[in-house]
Design a protein around this nucleic acid. Structure first.
Lengths: 344, 344
DNA sequence: GTTCCTGGTGGAAGCGCTTCATGGAAACTT
DNA sequence: AAGTTTCCATGAAGCGCTTCCACCAGGAAC
């Protein structure tokens, strides 16, 4: 299929320059005349040249490869996150390697494994609570690390203010008549990563209700795993305790979807008899008209990539924590009439 | 954290041999006296030496790294598959890199990306139907490729005989009184991989019923996505059409679990009023006493790794297709009394 | 005893790249 | 006009490894 890959020498020959010049073009060195650079780029194009990252690494430079470690959980969230990361990195001609964390043991092996340890210029770790699993909350690697969807005092972190998100949700639902309910999403057992995010959301939510003077008895909280099914069960549970109208903070869009479906099945009017507010801002929320607390996932990924780029370029300041704010998106699931927009 | 990694020269110096000898030890060359080899290994141990795969690659040899491409679907199946692959590969001192296929576009990018294209000695592709997505069913790579949980005439493949599995299921359930139902699991939309496996299972199932002379009207088939929820809905659907005893082939353990739960909720006796048969052999089936058609997933992974090793060592015969057979495991969900084992 | 292997070993060459002295030519000085 | 600086460009050295040729013992064959 693919022939022998062309090397820097062939490019140099074709462009009529020395190999040093080609290398400088590759590395964006300043001292190259624009027309020479153009000639070299043209030669690379014509030959279908791709730099060999291992040779680059060996030669003591960078490999222009970044690893992203992410939980082996197939959700839209990670898809969007990678999208955001990639957008920034591709532009800088970086290559991306994704590593699903199937287990705790595997993460450790990755970090020690030659592939990752030798090749990668830097790494992004998603949704992973280091402090729990690594001594001193420090990864056994000497490459720069950026965390996303997690916080850690030792590394640059990009995270969503989940407490604020919950607070927004509480504030918003407190404006409606009828009792208020909430779903607490449980952590998956035996996962290699943590998810305190749900607890944070709930804490913010409860805080807001307290501020608004709205009661939130214990029976109004239903705990379940992250699933549509959980939403269905939750709504049934709530309806045993109160009759419509009800206001429900679902904690996650997926759960909210279950509630939506169950409400429909039971013939309850959405936005009136049952008001549902999700969390995450999944693409499907728009389709089904689900109000939600949206996370700017792509932006978070992009920011993480930027922080990493800076580190890889030598920035050595103290760890930075970048906080993102969620955004309330109001849709039909909490609104009887589309003509009355919510104004905070 | 990690100091400068020791190189082959330091190992050579410490062992009091030449660098050529160290290399020969690394590559299992025959021509090294056992005691010399031992001395070298000891030196490597003491220095904490790890060979640099990029240097190996550059030097024209292998990198001793294999890539496994797998759908971004967090299931026990892939966990076990990787386990099986890894078992074989680690033994041969190979390193593993996992690449989740988040999307069709990303798979393509992987194959072209320098990381995978340059580093990897060979690759294993799981649950992916090449013919649909690549021209001529051929991957744009010159490295050896082995498919697992998929078939393709161009590459070595390791697969389960899903038709046979379905047939076993049909044969088995046909022995019981009461009408027979089945769940057909739908493919996920917009996934980068195919799953004809469910269709194959069902085909085998129907064939077996026909052979046994048992009717299977259209209304006895319920189609749903792969989820517990789907199982719940399926059972309700079936109960609208017939009263117990019922026999249900769930098509997948996850669906079967939903059926189990719903049956319990409805107060139906398992193994008597409702008999449920799953497919896959998930670990949880043992806990909950679910009968199932088990796949030897680890063995399949291991076999795939072996085939790949052979290819990487130069074997150039025609593509081989290794078929695995599923195994019926009988448990409480299809058995009233534990004292009466099923003898085929 | 001489020749020819053979198993065991050492080290130079070279993989594709970056980096670094080095140098030529043009652009500024005074 | 000659000296100085700047800008480009060159190719050797070296990254950590594999491979290959060269070499040396000792044993087998003559």
């Amino acid at each position: 299929m693919s022939k022998k890959k062309p090397t820097i020498l062939e490019v140099a020959a074709r462009a009529g320059v020395g190999l040093g010049t080609v290398s400088r073009v590759l590395n964006n060195h300043k001292a190259v005349r624009p027309e020479t650079r153009a000639r070299v780029l043209k030669a690379m194009e014509e030959l279908g040249y791709t730099p060999n990252p291992h040779a680059r690494r060996i030669a003591g430079g960078r490999s222009y490869t970044v690893s992203v470690l992410l939980p082996f959980v197939a959700t839209e969230f990670y898809r969007r996150l990678v999208e955001g990361i990639e957008g920034v990195l591709l532009e800088k001609r970086y290559d991306l390697a994704l590593f699903p964390i199937l287990s705790q043991a595997r993460l450790r092996r990755y970090l020690e494994s030659s592939t990752l340890a030798f090749l990668t210029d830097g790494l992004i770790l998603a949704s992973y609570d280091l402090s729990e699993h690594f001594e001193g909350g420090r990864l056994p690697t000497d490459r720069p690390v950026v965390l996303v969807d997690a916080k850690n005092p030792r590394y640059d972190s990009v995270y969503l203010d989940n407490f604020l998100g919950g607070h927004l949700a509480g504030e918003y639902l407190a404006r409606f008549p009828g009792p208020i309910f909430a779903v607490k999403v449980e952590e998956e057992p035996d996962r290699a990563f943590r998810h305190t995010v749900f607890a944070e959301r709930l804490a913010g939510f409860q805080e807001a209700l307290k501020e608004a003077g709205r009661p939130f008895p214990e029976g109004h909280l239903y705990t379940t795993r992250l699933s549509q099914e959980g939403g269905r069960l939750a709504l049934r549970h709530f309806l045993e305790r109160a009759s419509p109208p009800l206001n429900v903070f679902a904690g996650a869009d997926q759960v909210a979807l279950g509630i939506l479906e169950e409400a429909e099945r039971l013939g309850l009017t959405l936005g009136k008899e049952v008001r549902v507010l999700g969390f995450d801002g999944h693409p499907f929320t728009e389709e089904v008209g689900l109000s939600t607390i949206a996370q700017p996932v792509e932006a978070m990924g992009a920011r993480a990539a930027q922080l990493l780029l800076e580190r890889m370029q030598g920035y050595a300041g103290p760890p930075r924590a970048v906080r993102f704010e969620p955004l309330l998106i109001e849709r039909a699931s909490t609104r009887t009439s589309p003509a009355v927009p919510y104004l905070p």
